[in-house]
Each structure stands twice: as C-alpha cells, then as structure tokens.
Design a protein around this nucleic acid. Sequence first.
DNA 1: TCCCACTCGGAATGCGCTTTCCTGCACGGT
DNA 2: ACCGTGCAGGAAAGCGCATTCCGAGTGGGA
Lengths: 342, 342
Amino acid sequence: MPRARLQDVADRAGVSLATASRVLNGSSRQPGPALVERVRSAAADLGYVVNAQAQALARSRTGLLGLVVHDISDPYFSSIAAGAQAAAIEHGRLVLLASTGRDPVAERKAVAAFAAHRVDAVIVAGTRWTPEDDEALAAALDEYAAAGGRSVIVGQPVGGGSVVRPPNAEGARALAEALLAAGQRRFAVLSGPSRVATWRERADAFARAVRAGGGEVSTVRIDEFSRDGGYAAGDDVAGLARGAAGGEPPCVFAVADVMAIGLIARLRELGVAVPGDVCVAGFDDIPTLRDHVPALSTVRIPLEEMGRLAVAAAVDDQGAAGVPAAVDVGFDVVLRTSTASV
Amino acid sequence: MPRARLQDVADRAGVSLATASRVLNGSSRQPGPALVERVRSAAADLGYVVNAQAQALARSRTGLLGLVVHDISDPYFSSIAAGAQAAAIEHGRLVLLASTGRDPVAERKAVAAFAAHRVDAVIVAGTRWTPEDDEALAAALDEYAAAGGRSVIVGQPVGGGSVVRPPNAEGARALAEALLAAGQRRFAVLSGPSRVATWRERADAFARAVRAGGGEVSTVRIDEFSRDGGYAAGDDVAGLARGAAGGEPPCVFAVADVMAIGLIARLRELGVAVPGDVCVAGFDDIPTLRDHVPALSTVRIPLEEMGRLAVAAAVDDQGAAGVPAAVDVGFDVVLRTSTASV
DNA sequence: TCCCACTCGGAATGCGCTTTCCTGCACGGT
DNA sequence: ACCGTGCAGGAAAGCGCATTCCGAGTGGGA
C-alpha cells in the first residue's frame, strides 16, 4: 500500500490541495468548519501521514536539530543529550545524533552531514583537544552559519555561535574554598599538557583559589584526560600519599569526575584508602556518582539543564537576528565522603 | 549568502543539471572525466552542499534511522545507542533520537514523528510495560511497516519487524548454574507483578535452573523495576539476611544491573555487607559497573553490539524482501566480588 | 560507404508539499 | 441599485534534486 499523499486526501474530501494543506498543517488561514471536518476525516480514513521531507523542502525549514557529542555512552554527554532531547520535543523539533568518539574528523563530518540535512541548528557539546581542531570545527560551523544555520556550543566557545558555558572557573574556585574551609591544606591537581580550555580553566582556578586561601598545591601529571588517564595517575598519587604518611592526607582534584573515578579505582588496587590516605574531588557530578563508593565530592553542574538551554538557544527566535546568546549556568559544591576527614 | 543549489553548480560548470547531479551524487552513470572535473571544481568554488531533503524527496529514501529508547541517560540504552550510532555512520545513515522517558504515549508519538520524517527504519530498544502498550506500539509500527517502513526491536518482539534478542533465559540459566557451581544454594529473585517479558524470562529461567540444580529460591517483591525499586527492596533483603544469620548468606538475583546497584546502596545504608551477609548478582553488565564497589557479578551482554546488529538489520537489503530477521546475541557470565564467598 | 549499436549530455517530468496570487461571492454602506 | 471590502477556496508556481527519455555523436563491422 503506497502512502497516501496530501493530494489523495484533498481528492477524497473534494477540496483543493491548498485547502487540505491549510487544514492539516497549522496554517494561519483556516478554511470553514465544514471543510475542515471533511478534510480531517478524509485524512483519517486514508491514514495520511504528512511527509516532513516535502514540507521541509517547501518551507525550507526542517525542524531538525543536530547534536554532536564526543561519546553518547559517557554519562556526561548522555545527560546533556537527555535534556536536549526532551527540550527538542517540547519545541516540536527532532534531534539528529552524532557521537564522534572524540575524533575531530568525524566531528567535522558530522557537522557536514547535518548541514546537508539542513538542520535548523547544530549543537556541539564538549571541547576540542587542539587549537587546530578548534579552528577546523569553527570553520565548519561558520560556513554552516553563513548559509543560514545556527550553532550552539556547550562548553568552550568555538566559532561565532551561541554558547552555554559551564561554570568552570567559578565552580573550581568554590570547590577549593569549600575544601579549605573544611580544613584541607595540601592539594594536588591532576593536570597535564592539555590545551583543552575547560580543563585548564578548572585546574588554574582551583590552584589560584588554594593559594589565595593559604594552601599549597602541586601537580600530578596526567596524559589522557579520561577515566583511564585518572587510573594511570594512581601510582603517582599513591606516592604522594606515602610521602605524607602520618600527616594530613593530601587532597587531589581531578578536573572531571570520570578521571576521579579512574584514579580511585587504581588507588583501591594499591591499597591506598580514600579518604583515609588521600582525599579526592571531581567535577561535574555525573549521575553515575550516585552509587559510587566512596561518595565523591564534586561540583555539581546541571547537565540536563545545559542540554535544555542549548536547545532553547537553538530555537530561540530572538537570537536569529544575529547576536548569539551566551548563557551561564549555576553550580553547587557538594562535599561527600571522598574528602571527609577520618 | 543563500546556499548554492545544484543548478548554480551546473550553470557555473556550463553543464546541465542532470550532468551535475550525476557527477556529485554517486550515480551509476558517470560523465566524461573533463566534465567531472569542471563540475567538481565549480561545486568547490561555490561551497555547494547537497540538500538531503530534496534528495530524499526525489529518491524517496531519506537515509535516516529512527532510534527510540526509554532513557538515553541510562547506561544500558546509551550503550546501545553508541553502537547503533557508530554502525549507522558506517552505513552512511544518520540517526534520529527519541528518548521517551518510558512513556508509552511519547513512544508512539516518536514513532509517528519518525514516520513523518520517512526514516528508512525505526529501531525500538527496551520493552513495554503492559500488553496494551505493546499492542499500541505494535499497531504504530505495523502501520508504519505497511507504508513501506521497516522496524527493528531490540528486546522482546513487538509487531512484525526484525528483532535483536538478548539471551535472557540462556543468560539467567547460565548465571544460576555458575552460582550453584560456586557453592551457592539459597537464592532469592527480585520479582514482582511486572508483565515485562524480558524480566519475567530472566527471573523464571533463573529460578528453574536453581531448582534443577538442587537449590532453593524465594521471591522478593519489587514494585518498580529500576534503581529505586532495587533500593526499596533493600529492607526486605536485609530481613532475609538476618534470617540466615550465621549460615550461608543468601544470594539475590536482580534481573537488571541497575536494580542490583540500587539494592546494594540500600544494603550498605542498613549495614548489611555484600557479599558478607548477602550476595547479589545482576544482569546486563552496563559500563557503569566497571568501577562499582563491590564488583557486581552479572551476565554480560554485548550492548553496543546489539545496537550495531539492530542497524545492520535495519539497513540490510535482504530483509527488505519480507522475512524479518531474528538475531540472537551471545553472553558471558562474569562472577565478581558481589557473589564471592568470604 | 552505409548502418547499427553505443555512449554521452541535456530537457523535462515528478517527488509531496507550501504559499502567493487570483477569482468569485456575500455583505454592508451610501 | 451600486460599488468597495473582506473573505473563502482554488490554480499554479516553486522548493532542490533524481531520473527517464531523447537526440546527437562516435566507432566498428559489413
């Protein structure tokens, strides 16, 4: 059974194509009640399903939103995606998903594919790894924007689109202050050669705040900013703990929860107690943390909300005029077991 | 700057629309090398980006896959989504995501929206809660299929589409046998009034295998099949443990990892040791488990792979003929700390 | 030399829908 | 009675592309 077309509906209702269209697709001009009813029932009889592709072509608006994330199976991104998806539905949009596996090339390809599908806006979550990648992505986005598309970044601004900015510096500073207030003095930051702005911001703001508060802070080298990178840093951190044996346990700040989790896993293997021998704090408060042991101190940022805000910025008619929006979100410092004094 | 159309490219290259189309869009008929080059460079000069909507309309194939999941922020589903997404890219498709929050109405709406967008296939992951919902969804899918669409279910078959079936009964049986082999005798299954076939299958197969192996099995009522449902069951399980104090600790089987995690969280609050006072096993081996304490015994099923298989079935040209595919996936029983004897 | 079989490029049609423009009509005012 | 208003419905022109059909040109065989 071939699908019924709008023309079929119009024929069956004995009206013109134009009238049928007006009835079925939220036109500002509604025909008389009698016709409306005829068209409606004809459509129902035929099981008519509008063809969004044809609509998109005629209207030159697709109602599609493109969402590109590093890894959809990462709780950080899947939370953002959940919020974005929910908000999209509320706005009558559908979301096209691209999970790029942190591959800059895949990322650009995804943007290109979205552009081909004429998404109304593309939302990019997560930051790039090198300035080159940043630029390449920015170029892709700007080209897309030049052709009438819109872009929203969740994270570090890239290109000329709107941005939903997580409170990296503010959150890290507040976390440091809270830990200082809790009596911690000796800190270490998991850091490394990364040029990723998000992580640099968090690490720097944390270190500054610690020093300003009279604490001391060292650095533990980390090569890969991920769960496994945190795991690999476990041995160095264990060394740190041994160095401080007997005294106040040092407090390690991992710039993302996943790294903190990896770190703790390794520490457990090494027999280093958290928070007994070393305290650990993270950032993000990913949902996974809920049942993690020990409960991890962190900075909660509203991941779902960020997804929603990104969609709001993407569909916002105001912003269409040009001025891209920049929205900041709030945060909460949550101190849990992992930084408790024992 | 308005977007360049194929016509513009053709004009600039001094060829016809047809030729430009043949050059740029993998037609079986390729024009001569000279023209190809002219068209290519004209397209590059103009920054031409094909309009997938128009292509879809002309070809009556969109290259879109619709994926509907209960909750994209749930690691079970986000893993499947990751696999599906990756496979879709490999097949040159894009995936439209719908996260329904387990709302049957939202689920049907999502299928309808996908149908409107003429996705080549819709993939539904996760099972319904009541037969009515099942039927409603089946109706939506069948209607969609009647109009030429294809559907793939990951989980319990619903409607006439293909299905990727997790090894519910097989896995649960194997888990039971492994636990029996490890010396466990007294079991309890977290179960309840759910009509969800997936969970019934797992619970029943587990109980059967236990009895067949000479063990005994009781039931712990659970109202909500989720992390919080597992949490709520904690008190009853704790009672079970107290009843067995001194003897062999009972072994509780939760039909999904998330329930096991919730259960363990509550047990910890109650001071019931796992695995000391009670053993716990789950099902699925969601990625989250990697750093969970205690390490949870479970049945590993290849979540990403299931997503990939679903996409494969969706784009498979063979199946187009009619016979829907049914593919079974493998599993592994992994015994970890949570069921260790202490 | 003539014809046939092929190849190659272009014109034109159609995919399904929105929207502008136009026509016909009823109504109210003068 | 006449004309201007306003509105309802329909015809038709696209939206951007794939693809079928056609005509023209090319080469080879007889």
